[in-house]
Simulated scan of single mutants.
Amino acid sequence: MPGPADALGPILELMTWVGFVPGIPLLVAGWVVAKRRCPWTSTTAEVFEAGGYKGFRWSDGENAPHLSLHTAEETRGLEPGSEVVLHFDACHPGRWGLVPHRHDNTVMTVGWILTAVGIVCTLAGFILMMF
Rank of each mutant, 00 (worst) to 15 (best):
G30A: 04
G30F: 01
W31V: 12
W31A: 14
V32N: 10
V32E: 06
V32S: 11
A34M: 08
A34I: 00
A34T: 03
K35N: 08
R36D: 01
R36P: 00
R36E: 04
P39C: 07
P39I: 11
W40Y: 15
W40S: 07
W40I: 02
W40D: 10
W40R: 03
T41N: 08
T41G: 09
T43R: 01
T44C: 05
T44V: 14
T44H: 03
T44A: 13
A45D: 02
A45C: 09
E46H: 07
E46A: 09
E46P: 05
V47P: 03
F48H: 12
E49L: 15
A50T: 06
A50W: 08
A50C: 05
A50Y: 04
G51T: 02
G52W: 09
G52C: 04
Y53M: 08
G55N: 10
F56E: 00
R57D: 14
W58D: 01
W58G: 01
S59C: 04
S59R: 12
S59I: 02
D60L: 14
G61C: 03
G61M: 05
E62C: 07
E62W: 11
E62R: 12
N63D: 15
N63K: 15
N63R: 15
N63Y: 14
N63C: 13
A64C: 12
A64Q: 12
A64L: 15
H66D: 08
H66C: 05
H66W: 14
L67R: 09
L67F: 06
L67P: 00
S68V: 08
S68Q: 05
S68M: 05
S68C: 11
L69C: 05
L69R: 04
L69V: 10
